[in-house]
Write a protein that binds this DNA or RNA. Structure first.
Lengths: 145, 145
DNA sequence: CTACGAATTCAAGTCGGCTTGAGGTCAAGT
DNA sequence: ACTTGACCTCAAGCCGACTTGAATTCGTAG
């Protein structure tokens, strides 16, 4: 089996060594042994890092990602939770689609003030409704009662 | 025309007053005048805040959002830039779709280790390829050369 | 054997995005 | 007139996610 120096992993993922060390420190990835001082990563770490990056771009915190991915390589959460996450993502996707369409509309619509443009308002409303009247966001935030 | 106290805005958006003050401080929103000490927000601020929330959930920084939304209510960036943003979003959406499908797959696939499951790897690969081999992310980051 | 370069640790720093707390102001209700 | 409660300012603090820097340790190539 092939092992990778931190520099190799860095080169192949575009993540900095400092980031990889940090990820190891918080338990998000792990090296299998040391060659001298140097961490040796198994090749699977690349896949795991890809998953981590996907999670990040989905707006999950590193903590949440750790929860989803589990300690070893395979995700280990109850099915229901995973489905729940997937549903969350569906909502987020709808929002992004609405935002994308809004941007395209704004780019092309010649109306002087978009706030009055019915198309614009409909697009924005879609996102609002999809998000259940409350906008999706993660992390520290008040849950307005 | 109707004006809103910060508390009203807070109630209708779920954002805390402190957040709204902060947003005003950095110029992301603005109140029109004061009633005594109290900021009076025009009703349009609600729409603007919705747009801000959309932008956030799309992974834009507040700075970028300010750029997209412009000083007054209407977005004011060259068409090309807006289209560029929209294309970025398309990429991000593909990634989220892949992640969502991956989660659903993992939730339902009985394979003991997903790393070997071809369906799983294909799903992950999709995201990788979509992102052009390098995962989308914003903000301070090295551009690996 | 020595020099080099890539890795190491650890503490401290940075940045974005808010939140918190102390102390003060105001307008409306009783 | 007084109290109440929602607002105000300003400085400082906090959290997540890294980055930076200084001092050090390796392993390999010359």
């Amino acid at each position: 089996m092939e092992f990778l120096d931190i520099g190799d992993v860095s080169d192949r993922t575009g993540m900095r060594p400092s980031t990889l060390r940090y990820y190891e420190e918080i338990g998000l990835i792990s090296s299998v042994f040391r060659h001298g001082l140097r961490r040796q990563f198994p090749a699977e770490v690349l896949l795991r890092l890809k998953l981590i990056a996907m999670g990040k771009s989905a707006g999950f915190s590193l903590d949440e990602i750790a929860g989803i991915l589990g300690k070893d390589g395979a995700p280990e959460l109850p099915r229901a939770v995973l489905h729940q996450r997937a549903d969350d993502l569906d909502r987020q996707i709808s929002e992004l689609v609405a935002l994308r369409d809004t941007l395209r509309h704004v780019a092309d619509c010649p109306a002087p003030t978009h706030m009055q443009c019915p198309t614009f308002r409909r697009l924005v409303d879609v996102a609002g409704r999809r998000a259940g009247g409350r906008i999706r966001s993660r992390g520290r935030e008040k849950t307005v009662g």
